[in-house]
């Protein structure tokens, strides 16, 4: 209604006033749009989280939710070791993410700024996208035939006399889970970093060199800060799937690497929604803490645009 009245007044007003009123109209429209988006976001994201949090204070008896508030579900998280599951999941996900970053950043830098030809670059980019077209279970289960007691690697080790007995830790272990997750999550880390580095103007790097900076100084003071948006995106795109990993722990962990997804699945078999809610709430709280810490770290690198400063 306000917008209509202002538009009607606009017709007979002097030019200066018209501009002022146009900005008022735009401002009002922006505010409405912003409000609508905020409301939609609140309904779609915040309300479910609140419901999730509230649900964590209920319990389950004989496959039925008991809507009497209590702390039983939360105390049960600690008694059943599910608290450790959350920390273990976080540890594994962060380890994998950091390995991806350490391996992926140099690769992305090489891909974006080295002297390789366009064809070679296109081939490597295509190779990075291939995993998106293949089923993760199919890709993961292959490792069993390679890492198992009677697998390819052990067969080679035994036949060449390098070992006397099969190496058992290669499969059904945390090592195997990490090993399976790293190739699967390599593209989500590399591609955003590659995009960010590609956008860095070469003249900035040349200027840094011309001004006498060492390659290390150019990297830390020019390339890395400018690549930070890609690093953050890669970090989030890798950490998220790593936290929710289900296939690799299931197929390569042999049940000995109980991560969050398996724990939630187990609770779900008894329709223990409150346990699922408590676990999810706990993880979200840990993630918020983690992102807060990440932003603080980024501030030290001068990435003001990422720190809401």
């Amino acid at each position: 209604m306000t917008m209509n009245i202002e538009m009607e007044n606009e017709a007979g007003a002097p030019e200066g006033k018209t501009i002022m009123k146009r900005s008022k109209i735009n401002l009002s429209f922006s505010q409405v749009a912003l409000g609508a988006i905020a409301l939609a976001w609140f309904v779609a994201v915040i309300v479910p989280l609140i419901i999730l949090f509230v649900f964590s204070f209920f319990t389950t008896e004989y496959f039925q939710t008991v809507y009497t508030p209590s702390l039983d579900t939360w105390t049960g998280l600690f008694a059943s070791g599910r608290f450790e599951v959350t920390l273990r999941t976080l540890r594994v996900a962060l380890t994998v993410t950091m390995i991806e970053l350490v391996v992926g950043f140099p690769f992305a830098l090489w891909l974006a700024k080295s002297d390789i030809g366009k064809t070679t670059r296109a081939i490597f980019l295509a190779l990075l996208t291939i995993p998106f077209f293949l089923d993760l279970s199919s890709r993961t289960i292959v490792w069993r035939a390679i890492l198992g007691q009677n697998g390819l690697i052990n067969t080679i080790l035994l036949s060449t006399g390098i070992t006397d007995a099969p190496v058992e830790w290669m499969l059904y272990s945390e090592f195997a889970v990490h090993f399976g997750m790293i190739p699967a999550l390599f593209p989500p880390m590399v591609l955003p970093i590659y995009m960010a580095i590609s956008l860095i103007d070469d003249s900035l790097i040349e200027a840094s060199n011309d001004l006498g900076a060492t390659p290390a100084q150019t990297f830390w003071r020019v390339i890395f800060p400018l690549a930070l948006p890609g690093v953050v995106a890669g970090f989030v795109f890798t950490l998220g799937p790593a936290l929710a990993a289900w296939v690799e722990p299931g197929m390569l962990g042999g049940g000995f690497v109980n991560l969050l997804s398996s724990s939630i699945e187990s609770a779900y078999t008894a329709l223990r929604y409150p346990v699922v809610a408590a676990l999810s709430t706990f993880v979200i709280a840990l993630l918020l803490l983690l992102l807060g810490a990440l932003l603080l770290v980024l501030r030290r690198f001068g990435a003001s645009g990422l720190t809401l400063r």
């Binding site: 004989y62 059943s80 070791g81 599910r82 599951v85 049940g255 109980n258 398996s262 187990s266 008894a270």
Partner: peptide
Amino acid sequence: TTPQHSADIEDQWQRFLNA
């Protein structure tokens, strides 16, 4: 598939898995 004590049983099974 639906024991009366499913919640307690599932909790104890988690202890085993997490040990």
